[in-house]
């Protein structure tokens, strides 16, 4: 049996952390892109579009992320589409992230007074001009803090990708544990690394929130 020194354990965990970060970033970028599209669809006053968004949100918020990952990974391969664990993880995390972000952003846009839309309309601005010049600049300010806050959920969500065999922080932790039988030490370290990734984001989100509340 191979001996693992503390240094080896830490080195392996930190190496795996890169994949956790990469997966989080990919999911976050994918999620925001899809959420932006969905938000635009929702803002058009087209009932069909709004319906589609509503079903999308309910579907992906109402089922466990792990099931979505299983379906993406095993389901798609059963249907004959070859998909890697990496691809399945990104795909399902994108669904998950976007379904929550679109709701968070809806809340932010709804907090803007109706009068902003009406004043724009009375000045002759079109729907898109109103969005671009009036609504988005204000909504982005309100939405930044909760969006950064939500990114913590995305990072923690990536841990589930270990179950479909994607080698990231949690998966490497499990593998090291199988080799060393030191679960307490290893999983404490794993948890600590997650904490170090998430805590600064939480702090930053709180900071943004405060900044926004003061300037209001």
């Amino acid at each position: 049996m191979i001996e693992f020194s503390n240094y080896d354990i830490l080195r392996n965990l930190l190496f795996a952390t890169q994949w956790t970060i990469l997966l989080s970033l990919a999911a976050f970028i994918g999620g925001t892109t899809v959420a932006l599209t969905l938000t635009a669809m929702r803002l058009t006053r087209n009932p069909v579009m709004q319906r589609i968004v509503k079903i999308y949100v309910e579907l992906f918020q109402g089922t466990p992320l792990l099931m979505q990952m299983f379906l993406c990974f095993f389901g798609l391969s059963m249907l004959g589409y070859e998909i890697s664990a990496w691809g399945a993880a990104i795909l399902s995390l994108t669904f998950f992230t976007s379904a929550f972000l679109v709701e968070i952003w809806r809340g932010c846009i709804d907090t803007l007074p109706k009068g902003q839309w009406e004043a724009s309309r009375c000045l002759g601005l079109s729907f898109l001009q109103t969005l671009r010049h009036i609504i988005l600049p204000q909504a982005i300010r309100v939405a930044t803090a909760p969006t950064v806050g939500f990114s913590v959920q995305v990072i923690k969500g990536t841990a589930l990708a270990s179950v479909i065999g994607f080698v990231e922080l949690t998966k490497v932790g499990t593998m090291l544990n199988n080799a060393t039988f030191e679960p307490f030490k290893i999983f404490t370290l794993v948890a600590l690394i997650y904490f170090m990734l998430c805590y600064p984001l939480s702090l930053y989100s709180k900071h943004l929130e405060k900044k926004f509340n003061v300037s209001r």
Binding site: P113, G115, Q116, E118, A119, C122, I134, Q138
Partner: peptide, 13 residues
């Protein structure tokens, strides 16, 4: 037609 509202509705940003 120009419109003035009770709550001003200026663009705060």
């Amino acid at each position: 037609v120009g419109m003035i509202f009770q709550n001003f509705n200026l663009f705060p940003h």
